[in-house]
Design a protein around this nucleic acid. Structure first.
Length: 426
RNA sequence: GGAGAGGUGGCCGAGUUGGCUUAAGGCAGCUGCCUGCUAAGCAGUUGUCCCGUUAAAUCGGGACCCCGGGUUCGAAUCCCGGCCUCUCCGCCA
């Protein structure tokens, strides 16, 4: 969330951000509530001061064995009034908080203005598209043929929208996970975490999934727990309510987790095979950094994710999201889209965002710039490094042969007992 | 799941007959002084949030002893609910 004072003093900027992001937040109501709040606060704090002072007098009188009943009677009135005002205040503050949570982050000046996906801008491309001199098969066909995907049985287990790798497919997926984690931990300096994949409500609010996206989450109602939609949630909440030391920044974390999304609004399009699923595996990257370096850190975060695709030999493009496609909490975001030959599409495998202090304020993550200085909010960033299913699609489809086999990318072979080709079983 | 104990400041740790206790004491940190030696001694200082004030440093006030309610003129201290931690037992991977 944004700082209330900032909103008050920069209402035009905030209004513009709300409009450019296509959000809907009632600033005028916010200001009205804020006004009421400060009025109430003034009144109630005055009364509390009186009460504190008088209570001391009463204590003194009692100590001197003098009569304090008159003051006590007076204070009874005052206390009554205080509790009335306090409960009014609580109401107003709850309303204020509710509105505040609907105000989106402000897009970074470098973000292109636009309405939706079609206005995103490709900023670079890497690799050559595979030229196959036969009609490439989609991954679901190859998956069935080679017995590395078992989509029908996954549906039997959990219903439509759930998928499953099996045999050498599962091995391939596990190899990818280990490969990615190894690169990020050993080469890029991230600390590996294996976090809980259920998360409490407070964590979901901090990172901005709630309240807006509650309907997209899987909920364990009995315990008010949510299945995480991304490891961004546990990783970012790692330092919730903490004051970090400046010298320990930047902090880099990476985690492999399953991710759960109800994908409630999406029917039909691009849902075949592994393209859009309710549960998928992902390696996530999260950074906590000093405010002044966050946009630089975003660039290097993107590079860290890109390197995975480069090492795998998968062609991709990087797009910067326009204001209309930028998520609620983000200041700036790059999407990595890998090309897959079978479906002949670019598929999003990573979304790398700088949230600046938007999540940090919700999650109350601060750092002390200098030993005695006032704590300030850190900046948080995250990105996939990268999501598994669509990367699998690209590998299966781009590296297929006319014979219907799949050449295993070299970097993965050490993780797969040096298997170099997935062919018919036998 | 059953029985018991407990949750206090950066950390350790007092405070449980309600009232100068935001909070003793210790450690750590910072600032002076002293000391010539990988260290010690002496003195001072040290949290966070909010409202108001100041050009600013500041100053005034309020809140915070796990969280939320309650009793009371007044609660870290009493009562109720919740969360969490520890010990023992049971159950299970």
């Amino acid at each position: 969330m944004l700082d209330l004072k900032f909103i008050r003093e920069n209402s035009e900027i905030v209004k513009e951000a709300i409009q450019n992001k296509g959000e809907d937040a009632d600033l005028d109501l916010l200001f009205k509530r804020d006004e009421v709040r400060r009025q109430l606060l003034k009144e109630v704090e005055n009364l509390k001061r009186v009460r504190n002072q008088t209570s001391e007098q009463i204590a003194q009188l009692k100590k001197d064995k003098k009569d304090a009943s008159k003051l006590m009677a007076e204070m009874k009135e005052v206390s009554h009034r205080i509790s009335e005002l306090d409960s009014e205040l609580r109401e107003v503050e709850a309303e204020l908080e509710k509105i505040l949570l609907t105000v989106p982050n402000i897009p970074h000046p470098s973000v292109p203005i636009g309405a939706g996906e079609e206005d995103n801008v490709v900023i670079r491309e890497w690799g050559e598209l595979p030229h196959l001199d036969f009609t490439p098969r989609p991954h679901w066909e190859l998956g069935e043929m080679l017995n590395i995907l078992d989509l029908a049985r996954a549906v039997k287990l959990a219903g439509s929208g759930f998928v499953m790798t099996i045999g050498r497919g599962a091995l391939l997926e596990r190899a990818l996970i280990n490969f990615m984690l190894d690169i990020h931990t050993r080469k890029h300096g991230y600390c590996e975490v294996l976090p809980p994949i259920l998360s409490g409500r407070a964590s979901m609010v901090s990172t901005g999934q709630l309240p807006k996206l509650e309907y997209d989450m899987y909920v364990v109602e009995k315990d008010d727990l949510f299945l995480i939609p991304t490891a961004e949630v546990p990783l970012t909440n790692l330092h919730r309510d903490e004051i970090l030391k400046a010298e320990e920044l930047p902090l880099y974390y990476t985690a492999f987790t399953p991710c759960f999304r109800r994908e409630s609004g999406s029917y039909g399009k691009d849902t075949r095979g592994l393209m859009r699923v309710h549960e998928f595996n992902k390696v996530e990257l999260v950074k906590f950094v000093k405010p002044q370096s966050s946009h630089q850190e975003l660039e290097s975060l993107v590079k860290d994710a890109e390197e995975i695709l480069q090492l795998l030999g998968l062609p991709y493009r990087v797009r910067v999201l326009c204001t209309g496609d930028l998520s609620f909490a983000a200041s700036k975001c790059y999407d990595l889209e890998v090309y897959a030959a079978g479906v002949d599409k670019y598929l999003e495998v990573s979304s790398c965002s700088n949230y600046e202090d938007f999540q940090a304020r919700r999650a109350n993550i601060r750092c002390r710039p200098l030993p005695k200085a006032k704590p300030e909010f850190v900046h948080t960033l995250n990105g996939s490094g990268v999501a598994l299913p669509r990367t699998l699609i690209a590998i299966i489809e781009n590296f297929q042969t006319e014979r219907g086999t799949i050449i295993v990318p070299e970097v993965l072979r050490p993780y797969m007992g040096n298997l170099d080709e997935i062919g018919p079983e036998g």
